[in-house]
Deep mutational scan, measured.
Amino acid sequence: KELVLALYDYQEKSPREVTMKKGDILTLLNSTNKDWWKVEVNGRQGAVPAAYVKKL
């Protein structure tokens, strides 16, 4: 499985998103959308802005 690093804090704004903190390591589930990537963090799945994460 592919991992990404959170470059910034992000507070979810809808139920389809997830909150992450700078430095979090997230499991990347889907990166086909260039703006929003689906990730899993702390057992929750949701979208985060692609510009806020970097593939490891």
Rank of each mutant, 00 (worst) to 15 (best):
A6T: 03
G43R: 04
N42T: 05
E2S: 11
L7P: 00
S31N: 09
R44T: 07
N30C: 14
G43E: 06
L28Q: 00
G43M: 05
L5D: 00
T19I: 04
A6N: 01
W37R: 00
K34L: 10
E17L: 06
R44G: 04
N33A: 09
V18C: 07
K54P: 05
V41S: 13
P49N: 04
Y8H: 11
W36A: 03
A51M: 11
W36V: 04
T32K: 10
A50N: 03
Y10A: 00
K55V: 13
N33P: 06
E40H: 04
V4N: 01
Y8E: 11
Q45D: 07
N33S: 11
A51R: 14
W37Q: 01
G46A: 06
T27H: 10
S14W: 06
R44E: 06
L56K: 03
D9R: 02
G43I: 02
L5I: 15
L56Q: 05
T32N: 13
L5G: 02
P49E: 04
K55Y: 11
Y10C: 00
L28C: 04
A6S: 06
E12K: 13
V39I: 07
A50R: 09
L29I: 14
T32A: 12
L7M: 10
L5E: 12
D35N: 12
S14I: 04
K54C: 15
T27P: 12
V48H: 01
D35H: 14
R44L: 07
E2C: 15
Y8I: 10
K22R: 12
G43V: 02
P49W: 03
V18H: 03
K21N: 09
M20L: 09
T32V: 10
K54R: 12
A50Q: 05
M20Q: 01
W37N: 01
L3E: 08
V53C: 14
A51Y: 11
K13S: 11
Y8Q: 13
E12S: 15
L5K: 07
T27E: 10
A50M: 04
A51T: 10
A50K: 07
W36L: 04
E2A: 12
I25G: 00
K21T: 09
T19M: 04
E2M: 13
W36Q: 03
K22F: 05
S14P: 05
L7I: 10
W37F: 08
Y52C: 15
D9N: 08
E2W: 13
N30W: 07
V48W: 02
V18K: 01
W36Y: 08
A47M: 15
R44V: 10
G23E: 02
A47R: 15
A50I: 04
T32S: 14
Y8L: 11
E40Q: 08
I25V: 11
E2K: 10
P15K: 10
D24R: 01
T32M: 11
V53P: 03
E17I: 04
Y52T: 10
L56G: 03
E12V: 07
D24W: 11
W37L: 06
L26D: 01
L7K: 05
E17D: 05
K54N: 06
E40V: 07
N30S: 13
P15H: 11
N42F: 07
D24T: 07
T32Y: 10
S14V: 04
G43H: 06
Y10G: 01
G46R: 04
Q45W: 07
G23L: 02
S14Y: 06
V48G: 02
N33W: 06
K22H: 07
Y10H: 03
Q45N: 07
Q11T: 14
A51G: 13
E12Q: 13
E17K: 05
D24A: 07
P15V: 10
E40G: 05
V41C: 10
L3S: 08
T27G: 06
T27C: 13
V41I: 15
E40Y: 06
W36M: 07
W37M: 04
L29A: 03
G46K: 05
Q11D: 14
Q45F: 09
L5Y: 11
Y52V: 09
Y8G: 06
K55A: 09
K54A: 12
A50H: 03
T27A: 09
G23M: 02
K38Y: 15
Y10N: 01
V18R: 03
R44Y: 06
P49R: 04
T32L: 11
E12H: 09
Q11C: 12
V4T: 02
D9W: 04
V39F: 00
L26G: 09
G43D: 06
K13Q: 14
L56W: 08
L29G: 02
Q11G: 08
K1V: 14
A51N: 13
L28V: 07
N42Y: 08
A51V: 09
Q45L: 09
T19W: 04
T27M: 12
I25T: 06
E2D: 11
L7C: 12
T27V: 15
Y52F: 13
A47H: 15
R16V: 12
D35Q: 10
T27Y: 12
E2V: 14
R44D: 03
G23F: 05
N33Q: 10
L56S: 03
W37I: 07
K1D: 10
G43T: 05
S14Q: 07
K21M: 09
A47P: 02
W37Y: 09
Y52Q: 07
S31L: 05
D9M: 03
R16M: 14
A51I: 11
V18I: 14
L28W: 01
T32P: 04
A47W: 15
K22Y: 05
L7F: 03
L3W: 14
V18Q: 03
V41W: 08
D35I: 13
K54G: 09
N33T: 08
A51S: 14
L56A: 05
V48K: 01
I25R: 05
V4W: 08
W37H: 02
L7Y: 03
V53E: 03
P15W: 10
L26Y: 10
A50Y: 02
T27Q: 10
M20T: 03
T27I: 15
R16H: 15
N42K: 10
T19A: 07
D35C: 13
S31T: 11
L56N: 03
D9I: 02
K13T: 13
E12A: 15
R44I: 08
K38N: 13
A47C: 15
Y8P: 01
Q45E: 12
N30P: 04
K34D: 12
V39L: 03
R16L: 15
V41K: 14
L56M: 10
E12M: 13
A51H: 13
K13F: 06
I25S: 02
R44F: 07
E12I: 07
Y52G: 09
K55P: 11
K54Q: 14
S31E: 15
M20G: 00
N42A: 11
E17P: 05
M20Y: 01
K21Q: 10
R16C: 15
Y8R: 15
G46V: 10
K55G: 06
K1W: 12
T27D: 06
K34C: 12
L28F: 03
W36S: 03
D9F: 04
R44W: 05
Y52M: 15
K34P: 14
L5M: 14
N33I: 06
N30K: 07
V4K: 01
K38Q: 15
E17C: 07
N30R: 07
L5C: 12
P15L: 10
W36P: 01
G46T: 04
D35S: 10
V4Y: 09
A6F: 03
V41F: 14
K34G: 11
Y52W: 07
G23H: 04
E40F: 05
E12N: 08
A47K: 14
A6D: 01
V53F: 05
K34Y: 08
K1I: 13
A6R: 00
K55H: 10
P49K: 04
V53Q: 01
L7Q: 04
Q11Y: 14
L29E: 03
W37A: 05
L29S: 03
V53Y: 01
A6L: 04
G23D: 06
K54T: 13
K1Y: 14
Y10K: 00
G23T: 01
Y10E: 01
N33D: 14
L7T: 04
N30L: 08
K21F: 10
W36C: 07
V18M: 11
